[in-house]
């Protein structure tokens, strides 16, 4: 996704002199083509993220379209007040991009994990929250975000994520993609954890005779309420999957929608727990550690179809 991001930004910069990429001293060599071809449209703001976010807001209020890019914790929690005040309160059209989101950098420890960003941004007015699941979806939502006037946060993965939906079928902001069709249960997966949901659906079908639909979601806020209401009519239960804390995450958002609209559909929300991971390991290890890997999804789906609402792993 990282490479797709750099390619897309470079392609957009060639066409739009208003686009400026601000980097927090990361992406060594990644932006060489942008820097070489359009030096005025790239600025390394150093390891000074609070200032970088304020600078981006000032640029956006002056007619530019800045994209702020660094590792997710440093482009979110590190400079949260600047996001809230300078970007969101001013409704400044800044695109904030966090790379290596969720547990992408599991091996770097919790300083580099980002499992709180959805929860935080959901509570901040004016700002859209996006979590594309593969390179084509990233390209699609990034283009749309840069060409809009709406402050937007996009959390992306690292590199090597497989395409889950072919480029020609990539959908825009707020739209969903069905990658496995099913009839019993819906696996609603947001962001780069999509492959775990797909594997789980295949296992449910082959080993347990459960027909699970996998819906990939790229937008956490605003919530697609029409889509959710539609799903509620078609399935016996929903499992939400996200590489994010259960507290304040996408699943809670969906649960609140169902509850507040009187939709009595069993739901299990898979996300990370109320703990830091002190050990290091691969992203796959971390997903298992937090119980959000494919086997965990399989178990959750079975329990959800069996039991009452409220089963939390």
């Amino acid at each position: 996704m990282r490479n797709a991001f750099a390619q897309e930004v470079t392609a957009m910069a060639a066409k739009d002199p208003k686009l400026v990429l601000l980097s927090g001293d990361i992406g060594n060599r990644l932006f060489d083509k942008l820097r070489g071809g359009y030096p005025a449209q790239f600025m390394n703001c150093g390891v000074a993220e609070a200032n970088m976010m304020g600078v981006a807001a000032g640029m956006a209020l002056s007619g530019l379209r800045p994209i702020v890019y660094t590792i997710t914790p440093f482009t979110t929690t590190r400079c949260l007040e600047q996001i809230r005040v300078d970007v969101a309160y001013h409704n400044a059209p800044v695109v904030i991009v966090g790379t290596g989101s969720g547990l992408s950098y599991a091996s770097l420890g919790p300083t580099h994990h980002s499992l709180e960003d959805f929860a935080i941004f959901r509570a901040i007015p004016n700002i859209r929250v996006l979590a594309p699941y593969d390179a084509p979806s990233l390209r699609s939502v990034l283009r749309e975000a840069v060409n809009s006037d709406i402050p937007t946060y996009i959390r992306i993965g690292k590199k090597g994520e497989k395409d889950l939906v072919p480029s020609e079928k990539a959908v825009g902001i707020g739209k969903t993609a069905v990658v496995r069709e099913g009839t019993d249960i819906c696996l609603l997966s947001v962001g780069t954890i999509g492959p775990e949901a797909i594997t789980a659906a295949d296992t449910l079908k082959e080993s347990h005779g459960i027909s699970a639909e996998v819906v990939l979601v790229n937008t956490v806020k605003p919530l697609d309420e029409v889509m959710l209401a539609g799903l509620a009519k078609r399935f016996k239960a929903i499992v939400t999957v996200e590489e994010h804390s259960k507290s304040g995450g996408f699943g809670e958002h969906v649960s609140a929608f169902l509850a507040q609209n009187g939709i009595p559909l069993p739901i299990v929300c898979l996300g990370t727990g109320d703990k830091f991971m002190h050990s290091v390991g691969s992203q796959s290890y971390a997903r298992t550690y937090f119980g959000i890997d494919a086997p965990s999804i399989v178990t959750a789906a079975q329990n959800c179809l069996k039991g009452p609402v409220g089963a939390t792993p």
């Binding site: 600078v55 000032g58 640029m59 956006a60 002056s62 530019l64």
Partner: peptide, 12 residues
């Protein structure tokens, strides 16, 4: 910082 962004935008 916001003023700096505005000043840089003038140049860009």
């Amino acid at each position: 910082p916001m003023g700096l962004g505005m000043a840089l935008a003038s140049r860009i």
